[in-house]
């Protein structure tokens, strides 16, 4: 199915902080939670093919629908390589977009994903992409890490809400046979381009806001425990001074504190970004 979308900015929210939700591995794709729609952002290079291959792997595994989106990076005044001649820049971009849409379908077919929906976005791409995400409601967005940092894509991803996860893929080490652009594809060579999940983006915690809430709740619980202890200070001290079987009391208090307070302090440092080295 072919769709070309242009400027359509109704009801787009102001972008807020970029929410990036990486998956630890392909196997941990949101299978548990229903993942019915996968949106993949790609360009028509070998690199795009690698990203597509990754997304296809997830979509096939969890049997979800997939939409491949190609964003034409350009404003109407941008001189792109479309049909030239006596057309206005906007018109030229329109033709380019349609030509690209056909190329994208071909690209999908060539990369074993002819069943995926394809969409080409142009014009105010950030707004168009945001609207597309809002309307199509993907459960997972797969995107190249570099593309995710592009202003247009980043702006749109910032509007991602609810349970949608964003998986940013990092470029893996280039092999000897690596190709640049789609030269290799044209010659029919198997491109040597692999992707891995973005290390940099993965550092940003997947559920930062959830973690902050959890930390605050645990902190509040710890505070309540302290408050309870000091309110009942006299009674607790009197009982623990009795000794003998009352030894249970300080012991129990210590255990309760260690579990609640221990969980709180762990979350606290984690939230501040003090994390253990993952390599060991």
């Amino acid at each position: 199915m072919l769709a070309v979308r242009g400027i359509d900015t109704d009801g787009v929210n102001e972008p807020h902080a970029l929410r990036v939700e990486p998956l630890s591995s392909r196997e941990s794709a949101p299978v548990g939670r229903q993942c019915r729609r996968v949106l993949v952002l790609l360009d028509l290079t070998a690199r795009g093919a690698a990203v597509l291959q990754y997304a296809t792997g997830i979509a096939v595994k969890v049997r979800s629908a997939m939409m491949a989106v190609h964003v034409i990076d350009g404003q109407p005044w941008f001189e792109s390589d479309g049909p030239g001649g006596q057309f206005l820049p906007e018109e030229r971009l329109f033709f380019t977009a349609h030509a690209t849409a056909r190329k994208l379908d071909l690209f999908l077919a060539r990369n074993n994903a002819p069943w995926a929906e394809s969409t080409v976005l142009y014009g105010k791409t950030n707004e168009a992409l945001a609207v597309l995400i809002k309307r199509w409601k993907p459960d997972l967005i797969v995107v190249d890490a570099k593309a995710a940092r592009h202003w247009a894509v980043a702006g749109a991803l910032a509007s991602v809400q609810g349970s949608t996860q964003v998986l940013a893929l990092e470029r893996a080490q280039r092999g000897r046979n690596a190709v640049i652009g789609n030269r290799g594809l044209r010659r029919g060579k198997q491109p040597d381009v692999a992707v891995s999940e973005s290390a940099e983006l993965a550092v940003r915690d997947p559920a930062k806001s959830r973690q902050v809430i959890r930390t605050l709740l645990l902190g509040a619980a710890t505070g309540v425990l302290y408050w309870l202890m000091f309110v009942n200070e006299k009674a607790i001290l009197d009982l623990s001074a009795k000794g003998h079987w009352y030894f249970i009391l300080p012991l129990a208090i210590a255990f309760v504190f260690s579990s609640v307070h221990g969980a709180f302090t762990a979350e606290f440092w984690d939230m501040l970004g003090v994390k253990p080295n993952r390599k060991r």
Partner: peptide
């Protein structure tokens, strides 16, 4: 020690509060 009634649980918990922050670090 608690059997003998010597534990001041307030002191223990306050030190614990500080040291739990430390031990994670």
């Amino acid at each position: 020690f608690a059997w003998g009634g010597y534990v001041d649980i307030r002191l223990a918990i306050i030190i614990l509060g500080g040291s739990l922050f430390g031990i994670h670090l």
